[in-house]
């Protein structure tokens, strides 16, 4: 890995944010809008506090953590799409840049987005709803780290599909993550799923993070089992999708389609 090449790509993307309102909105406006809508729902549900204890904590916490996963995935996929839209893939891959360095740069961009979105959402939740995301305590860090990893897995997987199938698959950049939402058990416990779907959710690392978060808030018990399962599954899947990305990259070079992605 050559760090100067990773830095070059990161700087290239940061230049974009300097003068692009839509890109800044993606970090500030949309997460803010999400929070406002869910915030009001939570305020309404809080009036039934007796029947649904800790609903405010569950829902707003879950929303902020879901956005961590979503923005983490977007950081990877949109960075790749930016290169397609700019017809820049040929410039990049005819340079000494390796596919691993390219992925590393998209991961750095993903961290940048996650950090910016988390700050915006946490601040707004505190200002408008008096909600302190740090109520979860230090466990917030491993939870977030696992969700970032899950976002990367979905992001690299989606990027590989776009690279392989071209423009037709671009829509997956925005929709793929929502395929995983029902089995991520973001706003409800895994128990409410039908038995067969519970089996599917059990192999989804994000579901263990959200289960862990609810368990922690309800019982204050250390969510070690959930975090262990989430981390193990994340590392396994991340290794697999990175290998698959390299395989797809080589297949595209073999078929001559790498330079035609997006046409």
């Amino acid at each position: 890995m050559a760090y100067h090449r990773i830095a070059a790509l990161v700087i290239r993307h940061l230049y974009l944010y300097r003068r692009s309102l839509p890109r800044v909105m993606e970090i500030i406006y949309w997460p803010f809008l999400d929070l406002v809508v869910w915030g009001f729902i939570t305020v309404y549900l809080a009036t039934f506090q007796g029947q649904m204890p800790a609903v405010v904590t569950f829902l707003l916490g879950a929303l902020i953590l879901w956005d961590v996963l979503f923005r983490s995935q977007q950081g990877i996929t949109i960075s790749f799409l930016e290169e397609i839209w700019a017809r820049n893939l040929m410039n990049l891959f005819a340079s000494p840049l390796t596919p691993s360095e390219f992925l590393a740069a998209t991961m750095v961009m993903s961290l940048f987005k996650v950090t910016a979105v988390s700050v915006v959402m946490s601040l707004c939740a505190w200002l408008f709803y008096g909600y302190n995301v740090f109520i979860i305590g230090l466990w917030l860090m491993p939870f977030m780290a696992n969700l970032v990893l899950t976002g990367w897995i979905i992001g690299v997987f989606t990027t590989s599909l776009i690279m392989r199938f071209g423009q037709e698959a671009e829509v997956l950049a925005w929709s793929m993550v929502f395929l995983f939402q029902p089995i991520s058990c973001v706003f409800y416990p895994m128990d409410v799923l039908p038995a067969w779907l519970r089996g599917v959710a059990a192999i989804n690392p994000a579901a263990h993070v959200f289960e862990g978060m609810r368990g922690l808030l309800a019982t204050h018990a250390a969510p070690l089992t959930n975090l262990g399962l989430a981390s193990g599954l994340n590392l396994l899947y991340l290794g697999a999708v990175v290998l698959w990305f390299h395989h797809t990259f080589n297949v595209c070079k073999e078929r001559g389609s790498l330079v035609r992605v997006g046409e």
């Binding site: 070059a8 230049y15 700019a86 820049n88 410039n91 340079s95 840049l97």
Partner: peptide
């Protein structure tokens, strides 16, 4: 038949390329 990223200035594009090649 190729271009460089449209949303960057000429100078920014050249700076990125220079960094890419170390």
């Amino acid at each position: 038949y190729i271009s460089l990223p449209f949303s960057l200035t000429v100078e920014e594009n050249l700076r990125v390329v220079a960094r890419l090649y170390g």
